[in-house]
Amino acid sequence: MLNITKIREGLYGIGGGIATKNLVPRVKVYNERIVKQGGVEYRIWNPFRSKLAAALKNGLKTFPFTENTKVLYLGASTGTTVSHLSDIIVNGEIYAVEISHQAMRSLLRVAEQRENIIPIHGDARKPQEYEEVGKVDVIYQDVAQPDQDEILIANARMFLKKDGIAMIAIKSQSIDVTLKPKEVFDRVIKKLEQHFEVLEKIKLEPFDKDHLFAVLRFKG
């Protein structure tokens, strides 16, 4: 029998890994490993497939997700990380924005079985296109674009509650390949500090190269 420990709300430690309780038993999202014990099914959260899982493995302390959290997720892709948040936010809502037609098809399949995921086929640069989302508790952003800082600021102004939490995976190579990653990170953080209090900064190696995961509190 495996030793399963509760790390925090909705998160479990299993054999050195991180897991969430499967909201849709017997259904995998990205061929993740499933562990069954005591009548409960757990999905192992792969840090090589999810930047949030990588940040958790590297010591992330701030985890603002509860069963009732309302989240705006920018850059939802095919739904890997979104699905694990869906396991945690069982009574909340995840507004998952994705611009790619191909990724959206996969995301829609995930959302069909998870009522707390609301997929939005849209451009995170144009938050006015999904203004019906309203105010949220958390913005999570994984958008590999040169203006990813501006994207977060614009969405926070429209949607994030005062003192709400923003999480952003900063990919240096998507912003400026001519600069060292640290120079890019410092520049982006300096700009974000005009609107947010920086709570945590975590590098994502060995799971993702040249990425910095930042946790921010919105000044409003």
Rank of each mutant, 00 (worst) to 15 (best):
Q148P: 12
A76Y: 02
Q102P: 06
I118T: 11
V110F: 01
Q145A: 11
S100V: 04
S77A: 14
V143L: 03
I88N: 00
R114E: 04
I120Q: 10
A96T: 08
P119N: 11
I89V: 09
D186E: 13
E132H: 13
L179Q: 14
T80L: 06
D176K: 04
V184E: 07
I165H: 01
E183D: 14
G122Q: 05
T78E: 09
K201S: 09
H121V: 00
V90F: 06
N68R: 14
L107E: 05
E67R: 15
G164M: 13
D87I: 04
F196G: 13
E115P: 03
A144E: 01
K162W: 07
Q113T: 04
Q128T: 03
S172A: 15
K171A: 04
A124R: 12
V177C: 09
Y95I: 08
E197Y: 15
E131D: 12
A124S: 15
P127Y: 13
I153E: 09
T81E: 05
V143D: 01
K190L: 13
T81P: 07
E132R: 12
V82F: 03
L204S: 02
D123M: 00
I118Y: 09
G92Q: 10
G92C: 09
Q173H: 13
S172M: 02
A111W: 03
S86L: 00
V138G: 11
M167D: 05
R187H: 07
P127V: 09
V184I: 08
D147P: 08
A76E: 03
D123Q: 00
P127Q: 09
L152E: 10
D123A: 00
P127E: 07
R157S: 07
R125Y: 11
E112Q: 10
A169Y: 00
K203Q: 12
A111F: 08
F196V: 15
R187W: 06
Y130H: 06
S172C: 05
Q194N: 14
K190P: 01
G134M: 11
G122P: 03
D142F: 04
N155P: 12
V133G: 07
V177Q: 15
R109S: 13
E205S: 10
N68L: 05
H195C: 07
I153W: 06
Q128L: 11
G92K: 08
I189Y: 00
P181D: 01
H101E: 15
T69D: 08
T66Y: 07
I99Q: 08
K180R: 15
V136I: 04
I175N: 02
N91L: 13
S77P: 03
I89E: 04
I202R: 10
P119D: 10
V82L: 02
V143K: 04
T81K: 05
G92Y: 08
P119L: 11
A103S: 09
I94Y: 04
E112S: 05
M158Q: 13
K171Q: 00
V184N: 02
K180V: 10
L192K: 03
D176V: 03
K171P: 02
E200K: 14
E67A: 15
R114T: 02
I88R: 03
S77D: 02
E131N: 10
E132S: 11
D87L: 07
L108F: 13
H121M: 05
E150P: 00
Q148I: 10
Q102V: 15
Y95K: 07
T80I: 11
K135S: 14
L72H: 04
E131Q: 13
V71I: 14
